[in-house]
């Protein structure tokens, strides 16, 4: 270790330079591995059918068939089901950002008897597969007269029934130095004030992550919407797409080939990706604002 201290400046600089080069090499190499499946996805979605399975693999579609998307979107009510999905996603996101963060705050910062036991209970609810309490929950929502509405898909989350996000935010809150709390207390903030004025503003990165995770999870949620929503006009996007795929077989129409399947996959992927780009700003803000790092 002391070697590095004794190195000459030039050596240090050189070593540093080599390290940087190696770092960028690694980043580029891994980056290619991570991104190429996605590029392949997008490229395949724009290919004509004849090119989809060509050897050697062709990265550039020729000709570029944007019409694949039009063909796919024609076959199911894209905009309506996207809107239905949006409604559910928005509702759950509000719940996750507010209720879950408040719950996480209590678990992370407040001292009260039974806290850890209650937290273990929260964690435990993550460990039961949904498939087995689907029917019991269905019976419950029937009693509430909530079947065939999006309430079963939203209200539980408004009340924070998302242990994953509580856990995530609790872990994050616990890494924020307590000195900030104490400073705020001296300024006269109460516990809720600390949550609102200290913790939340310091937590943009994790709130951004929660927003993205929520969006992804509920954008794609398939089973619960299928069970609770009856009418086709209430269908969510994931269901509409699945229906479309199934119907190609059922209807004896020309079955979808890979280019169409990939186009559908891009359509499914695009909105969460947009949310990611939007939320990115908040990751960065969080870092800048806290002034914790460099």
């Amino acid at each position: 270790m002391s070697q590095s201290v004794q190195r000459s400046d030039a050596e240090l600089l050189l070593g540093r330079y080599a390290g940087r080069v190696a770092l960028y090499f690694a980043l580029v190499g891994l980056g290619i591995v991570f991104v190429s499946p996605l590029l392949w996805l997008v490229s395949s979605s724009l290919k004509p059918e004849s090119q989809v399975l060509a050897y050697p693999p062709q990265w550039i579609p020729r000709p570029v068939r944007f019409i694949n998307y039009a063909e796919v979107m024609q076959t199911f009510p894209f905009w309506r089901s996207a809107w239905n999905t949006m409604v559910i996603v928005t509702g759950t996101m509000v719940g996750h950002l507010f209720t879950c963060s408040l719950t996480a705050y209590a678990f992370a910062r407040i001292r009260f008897p039974l806290r850890d036991a209650l937290f273990v209970m929260v964690l435990a609810t993550l460990m039961i597969p949904y498939h087995v309490y689907l029917i019991p929950q269905y019976l419950l929502f029937r009693e509430l007269n909530w079947l065939n509405s999006s309430k079963p898909l939203i209200v539980p989350f408004l009340l924070g029934q998302a242990p994953f996000y509580i856990f995530l935010m609790r872990q994050f809150f616990r890494t924020i130095p307590k000195e900030y709390d104490d400073a705020a207390r001296i300024d006269g903030s109460g516990w809720f004030g600390i949550y609102l004025r200290i913790l939340l503003p310091l937590s943009y990165p994790v709130l951004g992550a929660v927003a993205i995770f929520t969006f992804m999870a509920h954008w794609n949620d398939f089973l619960a919407p299928l069970i609770y929503l009856n009418e086709p006009k209430k269908q969510t996007l994931a269901i509409a797409i699945r229906t479309w795929e199934a119907l190609r077989l059922q209807a004896g129409a020309k079955p979808a080939s890979w280019n169409h399947i990939m186009a559908v996959s891009v359509l499914l992927t695009l909105p969460p990706m947009l949310v990611f780009f939007f939320a990115q700003r908040y990751f960065i803000q969080g870092v800048v604002m806290t002034g914790i790092k460099g």
Partner: peptide
């Protein structure tokens, strides 16, 4: 670059 794969919905990545 590194995060985007995690945004791809499970159904889509299953197809992919």
């Amino acid at each position: 670059v590194y995060y985007v794969p995690a945004v791809v919905p499970i159904v889509a990545s299953a197809y992919l």
